[in-house]
């Protein structure tokens, strides 16, 4: 594990990023919490499961979120490009079900650049696109120290076009509404469990 800086870099604006792993939704929720204004969350309508606004309210106000349900990924990408190019929504979260090809990834980047808004693709593991600015892998981590309501996660940048890669253990501080970086579990005094 190579921790380069103390805090994880925030998502570069006007670019499209990718996140995979079991805690990708948590990463997206933290990203939602950090901006202002409306958010657009695109997903295909056959996908079971939904964001629970009650749980999401710990991160950001669910009233800010617009959820668009599309028929297939082509519609998802078209709507995402439209929203990114318009720039009225600060963040567009796109749930990807099949890997983007070079052209689709590039078009999203160009749209984000034109509209000065940020895109975040939730991708299945191993379905990254070469055009992405950064790719993150997020996994929840068991936290023996915090007995209730822990959101300890391990965030790792596995691709970065304009910076170095790294990994961090973070926890969402719901009272202060900010991200706390904690040292990995294995390196803490008195802990026996292994992190990661």
């Amino acid at each position: 594990m190579s921790t380069t800086t103390n805090i994880p870099p925030s998502l570069l604006p006007a670019r499209v990023h990718e996140v995979c792993g079991p805690a990708a939704t948590g990463f997206a929720a933290v990203a939602c919490a950090q901006g202002k204004g409306d958010l657009l969350w695109l997903r295909e309508d056959w996908q079971a499961g939904m964001l629970d606004p009650a749980g999401l309210s710990a991160f950001c106000d669910p009233a800010r979120i617009l959820v668009a349900r599309t028929k297939n990924q082509t519609d998802t990408l078209a709507a995402a490009e439209e929203a990114l190019r318009d720039g009225v929504v600060a963040l567009v979260v796109i749930e990807i079900t099949r890997p983007l090809d070079l052209r689709e990834g590039r078009r999203l980047q160009l749209a984000a650049k034109a509209g000065r808004s940020t895109g975040l693709c939730l991708i299945p593991e191993g379905a990254g696109s070469p055009a992405t600015e950064t790719r993150w892998h997020c996994a929840p981590v068991f936290d023996p120290a915090e007995p209730t309501d822990s959101t300890l996660m391990r965030w790792e940048i596995i691709k970065n076009k304009s910076g170095t890669i790294g990994a961090w253990h973070v926890r969402w501080n719901r009272a202060a509404h900010r991200l706390d970086v904690v040292s990995p579990v294995g390196q803490r005094p008195g802990s026996s469990a292994a992190g990661g």
């Binding site: 499961g49 009650a54 710990a58």
Partner: peptide, 11 residues
């Protein structure tokens, strides 16, 4: 809320 709620809810 007395207890935390999940972020994702599925059937």
């Amino acid at each position: 809320r007395p207890r935390p709620r999940p972020l994702l809810l599925f059937p």
